[in-house]
Design a protein around this nucleic acid. Structure first.
Lengths: 115, 115
DNA sequence: GCGATACGTAACCGATCGGTTACGCTAACG
DNA sequence: CGTTAGCGTAACCGATCGGTTACGTATCGC
């Protein structure tokens, strides 16, 4: 690699966070109800620090947020779903592109048919 | 790392493909119109093999597909948008989770307010 | 006050990633 | 039919990733 240096955007961070199945699993759990940091990874085949790192990725993507409670830390979904909304917008945008492309393809196929 | 071994799903592959800004850029270009392999990366600061690798990732995610034309290869959006649809479904699913959580949070806040 | 508990982070490690240069193959062209 | 153009892949390399063990710090329970 020569350079990365792209100044990762939040969309990058969010998509990256969601791209890992383990993180999606953790996000699911947190989404069901607020969970203690130690409990988030319960039953998963990894140590607590590994979970902690995943939580950090999810947190920095703006998907979840910590709620300190004394010496414990609850994690819950972020009160603002701006990060996910951005993904939704992106997916919606390229979905439009797709529709256009599919329509064009269909038109072409029909034109072929006429010939 | 001790183990990955998770047998990556297509959702994994698609989200991973989309998580890279360069690949999103290439996907955009291909989405506008079918593009020759050599032209996809035009103007981008990387060599052709690098582009070729990104195209492979996008292809294996089911987002684009090659259309060989003699010694050239056109790339276009995949005729079936199943991969993207899967992302859309996933995002929709956790969006619902968010709505539930936000509603619960709001209810809690109001309850607090009454106290 | 002191040990235990909960959490995060540092340091480390092998695997994977994103790039490069070098190469091989096939199709088009003179 | 030899050459060139177009494309993919192999081999390599530093950086980043996803995990580990070890450690530091703050809060709780006694």
């Amino acid at each position: 690699m020569r350079q990365r240096a792209v100044k990762t955007t939040r969309l990058d961070r969010t998509l990256t966070a969601l791209a890992d199945p383990t993180r999606r699993r953790l996000l699911d759990r947190v989404g069901r109800r607020a969970v203690r940091a130690s409990d988030v990874g319960a039953g998963l085949p990894m140590t607590r620090p590994a979970v902690s790192k995943h939580l950090r990725i999810l947190r920095e993507a703006g998907l979840i947020e910590p709620v300190p409670q004394g010496r414990e830390v609850l994690y819950r979904l972020a009160r603002h779903d701006a990060a996910l909304a951005e993904v939704r917008r992106y997916v919606a945008r390229i979905s439009v592109t797709w529709d256009r492309a599919l329509a064009a393809f269909k038109a072409f196929a029909e034109q072929e048919e006429d010939a």
